[in-house]
Amino acid sequence: MKTWLFFFRINIAGFALIHFLSIQPDFNDLYSYHGYVYPDIMDNTTDTISLTLTGLQGMLHKVGYETLLWICRIAFPISLLMLILGLFTRASAIVSLFLQLLLIKSIHLYEYGVDGFTTFALFYCCIFPVGRVYSLDNRLLGKRDNIDDRPYLFLLKAHLSIAYFFSGFDKVIGVTWRNGEALWKVMHSHNYYSIFSLDFLAGTPFFVISCWATMILELAYGIFMNISVTRPYWLIGIVLLHLFIALFMGLFFFSALLIILNISAYYVPMLKPVQSDL
């Protein structure tokens, strides 16, 4: 049953690592003074709730901006790798969360939906006993005590249920989601990648049905994902929804993260437990 904690840890950290690596070819365009929006200009509208690279550099005085950028650029993947391995798990998760927030809030104008999900998933890596299952910490410290993972699993499930409910609720109160126009508009947004055009379906009820299917899946997520009989069907529906978002809107990372969270909460915990000495 507790395998889900291992699945959650390696997939969230692995996801954050791949996501971070994906922007490396353009890293300077996002973060440096050669980028499209200079860090100090970007910083003007950042709140002081969490640190930014410019703010941190102001505190450290002697460290130059580019040096600090390089330190964070290297430290973040290292902390994520340690989290994957389960080495100093809690400390690695805390450092990963701090650096993720530092890096994303430093380019807050470039933030989008996936970043908030990554933050809370990394926060849960700090809180959940994710280092107690298949980790180097277990090997090195020889921890064998039983953990009660039920409160953590409940929290993850409840969080996802609230998130999906509000995602569906904000859609259903908008007329364009009820008549199919919203999906049509999303699919014709600039820069969203689609494997092929679905324009040939304009004359069919496809867009209206898809919009309603999305809203029903999201609004009733909290109910049907928590009833064992309906769970497999609802989970398939949610995974298909995210695959659609990936393939027809190009939000690959967003979709991948949501699929990971759903499988962590509603699929892996249902699998038969595996005995291991790790």
Binding site: I162, V175, W177, S189, H190
Partner: peptide
């Protein structure tokens, strides 16, 4: 505000909600 930021609980989930915004 600090709590919401460092736990990720400040995130709103109304993606593409109400109306899909125009873009350019």
């Amino acid at each position: 505000r600090y709590y919401g930021r460092y736990t990720g609980a400040e995130t709103g989930y109304g993606f593409f909600g109400i109306n899909v915004r125009s873009n350019g």
